[in-house]
């Protein structure tokens, strides 16, 4: 098996109860260093793909291989979550801690890092997202753009192998989007971005897919 493959989804089917199947024999393969975009109309299953990768939803059929292993049970996904950073569409859902340093520390502490290690990690990641010196600030008092960058910091701190970004530019002004794009230029990052914004995807990704009739196809 190619060690560079991070995510390999094969013949995956999924549908919400009482509704027609949203994904039908869906296939997607993402390699290390890839910067992939998924574009598509509302309700075509873009966010659902992310939920399935993170183990937040269970597939009806098909296989999800992540980091060389098939993942199907809850326990399989614990390792996945330590290695894949998921940025939610609404940062308010992701930011719930009382201070920024605790917000960033939440993941590393859950995965067993010690306090002094975490402090260094916080400093480094705040520098990456341009929020130096914000350690003691309260997350919900930040602006929309700052919240989004903080949410990104909370997942970057885990040094994930790949990022799943769900409409990261949504609701941000031009400046905030520019700053976000700048962070994504960092070498060595691999990610999948879901977005409705073709221009944003052009700036940030090098392969573009769309979901049609439950399947991922290369977009023009």
């Amino acid at each position: 098996m190619d060690e560079n493959i991070i995510i390999d989804i094969k013949r995956l089917s999924f549908g919400y109860p009482g509704k027609p199947e949203l994904l039908d024999k869906f296939e997607l393969r993402v390699k290390k260093g890839e910067r992939l975009g998924i574009i598509g109309p509302n309700g075509c299953g873009k966010t659902t793909v992310f939920y399935l990768i993170m183990g937040l939803l269970k597939a009806l059929h098909g296989t999800i291989n992540i980091l060389g292993r098939e993942r199907s049970r809850e326990n399989d996904f614990i390792e996945v979550r330590a290695n894949i950073g998921f940025l939610f569409q609404d940062s308010d859902n992701q930011l719930f801690c009382p201070s920024i340093e605790e917000e960033i520390a939440f993941g590393p502490l859950n995965f067993g890092y010690k306090g002094h290690q975490v402090k260094d990690m916080i400093k480094e990641v705040l520098n990456t997202v341009g929020l130096d010196g914000y350690e003691k600030r309260i997350p919900y008092t930040l602006s929309g753009g700052e919240k989004r960058r903080l949410a990104l910091a909370t997942i970057l701190v885990m040094k994930p192998k790949i990022l799943l970004l769900d409409e990261p530019e949504n609701g941000l002004d031009e400046d905030a989007v520019d700053k976000f794009v700048e962070i994504l230029q960092e070498p060595g990052l691999s990610y999948i971005i879901i977005s409705q914004n073709r221009d944003f995807l052009k700036r940030t990704t090098n392969t573009l897919y769309t979901i049609k009739q439950g399947r991922a196809i290369m977009a023009k």
Binding site: R81, F88, D90, F96, E102, F106, L109, G115, I155
Partner: peptide
């Protein structure tokens, strides 16, 4: 709906029910 989303976001960052303290 929001509580479900918050819970999902917590799970994605390794939350298993224990609240660790930094300082």
């Amino acid at each position: 709906e929001r509580s479900e989303q918050v819970h999902r976001a917590m799970i994605c960052r390794g939350f298993t029910g224990k609240y660790w303290v930094l300082e």
